[in-house]
Design a protein around this nucleic acid. Structure first.
Length: 423
RNA sequence: GGAGAGAUGGCUGAGUGGUCGAAAGCGCUCGCCUCGAAAGCGAGUGGGCGGAUUCCCGCCUCGUGAGUUCGAAUCUCACUCUCUCCGCCA
């Protein structure tokens, strides 16, 4: 959510940002309604002022034992008029809110301008892409053949885009979660949080999943709860409606959670394998910072996520997401993409975003500066550290061997208690 | 699921129809005191919106929403949440 004053004072900046983001929001209509609202508000407030003053007079008159009937009659009329105007203002408020909720965040000046993911800018690469002297298999074949994954059983039990993990597959999934959580808590200074996997509507709203993207979320029937699409939602909303002591910033939290997504609009894409599931595991990093520090913290967060891939020895690249591909809440976003041999290209495994105060406004998260000044909005950041299912897939593909077995990356061996996964 | 209690500013907690946006305490900021600190003393200190933007003025805000009234933190209704006890269940 943007500051209304920012829209009012710099409408062109906002319009341009929306255009760059390939969104459409009607700023002109917003401004028109905003102006009308204020016009009425001015009149309404002066009426209320009269009522307040005269009510005081009535109290005085009554105390002195004098007759106030005349004045009371007058005020009754004013009160009726006030009610009328209040409902009018309310109508304008509702329209403004509706518009405001759907205006996206404004890209940071350092974000590359572009139309689509084709215009994203590669920042750096790490790791050697392995040369295979045999025909590489996709991870879903490797996983099924080694008895680690069972997509068929899942479709019998639930439906498409779900899977069973089995045996060492389960252990590998757990190993990845534990390895990532240990790395972030012990080496990167994050505090571990285990969140609810369901949240109410206001939390979904706070982090920007609602109202625009309701069709992407799973709603629990008969309740007002949504299954979380990412731990970003509960872990950021942990601080909703609060004022944080400035001494406590920056806050670094990390959380493992299952994530649930409808994947509306991607029917037919990535139908096989672990890449696009309705339910997947993820380790999420969330930071709450002072506004001045958030961009510095974003760079550090990206590097924290990179450390996971470096430790696992999976080749990756870092991409700066262009304006047209940015998403609704982010002011700036980096993706980490891992090399997937069967795809012959890099595939997204992490997104790290600085939302600046966009979510903080929606969720009403403020901090009290150390010098004791006025409370102001924090900046919120979130990033995958990293998507577990996709990491699972990347390991299977990058560490596969000619005989169909998969070498366990060194960093995972204490967790896996084996060097190789074979039939 | 049944019964009850409660929701007030950063925190604790008074306040049951008329200068109450709200006592008191804590915390915080500034000043005095001090070599310095603590203690002590003094002053200040919620948020949102609108208007003038050097001082400032107005409106709203006591869980949320409606209602009664000239006037609501205070009365009525609905809802949400928290706590206690009982029942049931991982």
């Amino acid at each position: 959510m943007l500051d209304i004053k920012r829209i009012r004072n710099n409408p062109d900046e906002v319009k341009k940002a929306i255009e760059l983001k390939k969104e459409n929001s009607n700023i002109d209509e917003f401004l028109k309604i905003d102006e009308k609202r204020r016009e009425i508000l001015k009149e309404l407030e002066s009426l209320k002022n009269t009522r307040n003053k005269e009510s005081e007079n009535i109290a005085k008159l009554k105390k002195e034992g004098k007759d106030a009937e005349e004045l009371i009659k007058e005020m009754k009329e004013i009160s009726d008029k006030i009610k009328e105007m209040e409902s009018e203002v309310k109508q304008y408020d509702e329209k403004l809110e509706e518009l405001l909720w759907t205006i996206p965040n404004i890209p940071h000046e350092s974000v590359p301008v572009g139309d689509s993911d084709a215009d994203n800018v590669e920042i750096r690469r790490w790791g050697e892409v392995r040369e295979f002297d045999f025909e590489v298999k996709p991870h879903w074949d490797i996983g099924v053949e080694l008895g680690l994954l069972d997509f068929e059983a899942a479709s019998r039990v639930t439906g498409s885009r779900f899977t069973f993990y089995k045996g060492l597959g389960c252990r590998l999934e757990r190993a990845l979660i534990n390895f990532m959580m240990d790395l972030h808590t012990e080496k990167h200074g994050y505090t571990e949080v285990f969140p609810p996997f369901m949240v109410h509507r206001r939390s979904m709203f706070g982090t920007g999943q609602l109202p625009k993207f309701e069709e992407d979320a799973f709603k629990v029937a008969g309740t007002d709860y949504f299954l979380i699409p990412t731990a970003e939602v509960p872990v950021t909303n942990m601080y909703r409606e609060t004022i944080i002591d400035g001494e406590k910033l920056p806050i670094y939290n990390c959380a493992y959670s299952a994530c649930f997504r409808q994947e509306a609009g991607s029917a037919g894409r990535d139908t096989r394998g672990l890449i696009r599931q309705h339910q997947f595991n993820k380790v999420e990093l969330v930071k709450i910072t002072e506004p001045e520090k958030s961009y510095e913290e974003l760079e550090k967060m990206v590097s924290d996520a990179e450390d996971v891939l470096k430790a696992l020895g999976i080749p990756y690249r870092v991409v700066s997401i262009c304006t047209g591909d940015l998403g609704f809440t982010a002011a700036k976003k980096y993706d980490l993409e891992v090399w997937m041999p069967s795809y012959g290209r890099y595939v997204e495994i992490s997104s790290c975003s600085n939302c600046e105060d966009f979510q903080a406004r929606r969720a009403n998260i403020k901090y009290r500066p150390k010098d004791g000044g006025k409370a102001q909005y924090v900046h919120t950041l979130n990033g995958s550290g990293v998507a577990v299912g996709r990491t699972f897939a990347a390991i299977l593909e990058n560490y596969q061997q000619k005989d169909g077995s998969v070498v366990v990356p060194e960093a995972l061996r204490t967790y896996m208690r084996c060097d190789v996964i074979r039939k």
